[in-house]
Design a protein around this nucleic acid. Structure first.
Length: 367
DNA sequence: AACACGGGGCG
DNA sequence: CGCCCAGTGTT
């Protein structure tokens, strides 16, 4: 472990890879360590386009299992456009996200009808095709037409946010705009290496700069990576903000009889705390008199509730208002699914964590 | 079980 | 125009 001062100095001195340096480093790395010989790394916009659509949300290794047969069945855009949609869907079978296949078929028709069977060669024109957004259009433009267009997919976002220490969720418009601007600033000056550069970005993001365990030791940007200098690889890109969990609230009835026992009832087998013994729950304190009457109990006037406690689940928060009530129970009375328990016996049961806390002896002073 | 993901759809 | 979704794989 380095002493704090050394870390501080290291942070202060670390400088991100300069914009001018980024592309040359990436291109050199791609030449030596990137992917080569993929079946879509050819000079044919149709083949590039099909691969880019398949590669949306699908890994290279998976696409490799489907691409050759698809290309054999639909060797060019005219064949694809003329084929029945069902044939296209059949060839797509197993790749998932079938809207991509429908869009592919529609876009083939667009190329035939609106572009006379020749793929448009600009990012903007490519974006008019169904299923082709800004990033996919840039990839096709770069690979097939050596256009100076910036891609920005999930892999690239990871590389850029880490290398340049960009904080904030990339789904935010402001952050995404910032990333697009950066992606364009990093493009190589010359159009000559656009394919290697674009492939390099994809490869770096999917081979080294991965989400879980980035292999920084092999990364060409390592010495100029802000995230690495600060040990924040895992913190970038910033995760989507957890949408505020829905807040539910409930009243838990702490009913005690003359013997000091507490009333518990078994919860339904399904749902939260399935099958556990727990306290009776009411949606509102105002229901308490009716609930007690239905139970066949004579109760003392309600005292003020205990302070609300909050319990956090993975998908929601639950505010629990504990309402104590002293009852004079008659034998056999009470809801059918419950019974009286001594405190000791109750605490030996499987209880929801907040219920256990409420029954704990430390709460005795509240009674 | 939660998170991630490019483009489309919807309000 | 901005927010959220569908559908699937990964962690």
């Amino acid at each position: 472990m380095l002493p704090p001062l050394v870390l501080l100095v290291a942070c202060a001195m670390s400088v991100a890879v300069s914009f001018a340096e980024f592309a040359p480093r990436l291109i050199a790395w791609q030449r030596q360590h990137g992917r080569h010989g993929l079946p879509w790394q050819v000079d044919d916009p149709y083949k590039v386009w099909v691969s880019e659509i398949m590669l949306q949300q699908t890994q290279v290794s998976t696409v490799l299992g489907y691409y050759p047969a698809f290309l054999q069945r639909f060797p060019d855009v005219a064949t694809l456009a003329a084929a029945p949609l069902d044939d296209v869907l059949a060839a797509w079978s197993g790749l998932g996200y079938y809207s991509r296949a429908r869009n592919l078929h529609r876009a083939a028709g667009q190329v035939m009808n609106e572009f006379a069977g020749r793929f448009p060669d600009s990012q903007d024109a490519l974006m008019t095709l169904c299923g082709v957004g800004r990033s996919t259009a840039a990839a096709i433009a770069a690979f097939a037409f050596a256009r100076r267009a910036a891609i920005l997919d999930g892999n690239v976002k990871r590389v850029l946010t880490r290398c340049y220490g960009i904080e904030g969720w990339p789904g935010d418009k402001a952050i995404e705009n910032q990333l697009w601007t950066l992606a364009e600033q990093l493009l190589p000056d010359s159009v000559a290496h656009m394919a290697a550069y674009t492939q390099g970005l994809m490869d770096l993001g999917s081979l080294l700069c991965v989400r879980g365990q980035p292999r920084c030791g092999e990364c060409p940007m390592a010495d100029g990576c802000v995230a690495r200098a600060q040990g924040r690889q895992r913190a970038l890109p910033t995760a989507r903000p957890r949408k505020a969990q829905p807040l539910r609230s409930t009243v838990m009835l702490l009913a005690r009889n003359a013997a000091g026992e507490v009333w518990l009832q078994r919860r339904p087998d399904s749902g939260v705390w399935g099958g556990l013994w727990s306290l009776p729950e009411l949606a509102d304190i105002g229901e308490a008199p009716h609930w007690l009457a239905a139970a066949g109990w004579t109760a003392a006037p309600l005292t003020p509730p205990w302070p609300t406690v909050q319990h956090v689940f993975t998908h929601f928060r639950l505010d629990i208002t504990p309402q104590p009530v002293q009852v004079r129970a008659t034998a056999g009375a009470g809801p059918a699914d419950g019974r009286w328990w001594t405190q000791e016996a109750a605490l030996a049961l499987g209880l929801p964590a907040p219920v256990r806390r409420l029954l704990d002896t430390r709460q005795d002073s509240l009674w």
